[in-house]
Design a protein around this nucleic acid. Structure first.
Lengths: 241, 241
DNA sequence: CTATGTGAACAACTTCACAGCC
DNA sequence: GGCTGTGAAGTTGTTCACATAG
């Protein structure tokens, strides 16, 4: 079970997922700073701009290495470079999107992927009236050609944005032709062999949590003074997200 | 730190956010089961279908109450009813979406909201060529009319899907006219007063985590035997998401 | 004898608080 | 003096393992 993972030469092995998820946020902020001509920034300022706790920011950065200067802060350009090379904006990740309904199309258009080093190289859908149309310059191909397209483009990361019904079959086919990382937007649980990385995004989930807290606050009009509950918004001066 | 929050009549006070996020998944699964005519289901089967650990499922359900029968399992219809009433599918939550670019439009079209008790009652965008068009039967209104529309529709939950630049202003205006729960899809940190619930969704984040693990696995071709890392896919027989 | 419900152990993540360096 | 880097404490979420009910 414990997976061990014996110690290798240098560090740089175990950055928590939560940190990985935040690094692009820092990077985006640093880019803005750099464009504004800011040369140095403290953890407090950067944390503020990124919407996190300063200690969190410093701990996150400490996983990458020691890039700050005590008493001074971080060099914006240098830190930007370091984060960039860590999260593989060094290389470009080819990605295929399967399913071009509303969500798949929105994802294909979503500029946030491109700026983070992901490149949509193929779009797949079974509907004849979609096949041949292009989205962001990429033509939609027939889902039937999945195997040959995966092989030709050498994608290793796939996004499933199909209806729930077809998702598992698509998933199996992707796995069969060597895709090792799958991001599932379909509202269903997928099953994959253990060597495949699978993550799920549920667009409704955060809304659900908000609604729950809303309901709770309506239920007890008392004790709603400063901040009735936790999680939703428990940051020092109300900064979140 | 037992969290105090003096005991009120029955329980039903402190369900963890993580559990709230999973309940709709169970509900969806139960609906399928009920349609298939299944009358009773064990935690193992339901957990399997929902892609979670059986112990997790039982613990989640235990926050709602004691709805199972030892030695037997759960009554599908009864459990469905209980979960449904817990996550406020009892009431309908009116929601406004601000920003109807690709993402906002996809969210407006996303059927997952409707099936969970959310109802899009207003759409707002400042672009003249969008105003007046309708999406899922709801007309797009001028962002300038935000205040009056929020007041008229009495929405308490808003989704921000604008570009980063306009997000904070929209957020401030929403808060000013009484919106207490905001879901932010814009790639920027928003600041709100502490009584407002704010949550953020970053579509790139999960992809980033996948890419990181992909990169890691490429870095050590060794030890990729059974399951190189954790998080991504560490479920008993490889079922996830 | 089966499957729930749950205390307790465990694991991941966040925040605190302060030593250490500039 | 100011700000980083980090051990330690705190918090939240997950999994185990078993007593208990049916």
């Amino acid at each position: 079970m414990v997976s061990v993972r014996a110690d290798r030469p240098i560090a740089e092995k175990g950055i928590p997922d939560a940190t990985i998820a935040r690094l692009p946020v820092y990077l985006r902020t640093l880019n803005v700073m750099a464009d504004d001509g800011v040369a140095t920034i403290s953890s407090g300022e950067l944390a503020d701009a990124a919407g996190v706790n300063p200690a969190q920011l410093r701990k996150d950065l400490s996983y990458l290495g020691t890039y700050g200067t005590r008493g001074v802060g971080y060099d914006v350009r240098y830190l930007r470079f370091q984060i960039g090379s860590q999260i593989g904006s060094a290389q470009e990740w080819p990605v295929v999107i399967v399913g071009l309904g509303n969500l798949g199309t929105a994802l294909a258009n979503y500029s946030g992927f491109g700026s983070r080093g992901f490149k949509i190289v193929a779009l797949l859908d079974p509907k004849p009236d979609l096949i041949g149309r292009t989205v962001v310059g990429v033509p939609i191909s027939d889902l039937a050609d999945l195997e040959q397209i995966v092989e030709r483009t050498e994608v290793r990361i796939a996004i499933i944005a199909t209806p729930a019904a077809g998702a598992q079959e698509v998933c199996d086919r992707l796995v069969a032709c060597g895709v090792r990382s799958i991001l599932n937007f379909a509202p269903t649980a997928l099953s994959v062999p253990p060597e495949v990385n699978l993550r799920k995004v549920d667009l409704g989930q955060e809304l659900q949590i908000l609604a729950y807290h809303e309901q709770q606050q309506m239920a007890d009009p008392l004790e709603s003074g400063p901040n009735a509950d936790g999680t939703g918004s428990v940051h020092p001066h109300g900064v979140t997200a």
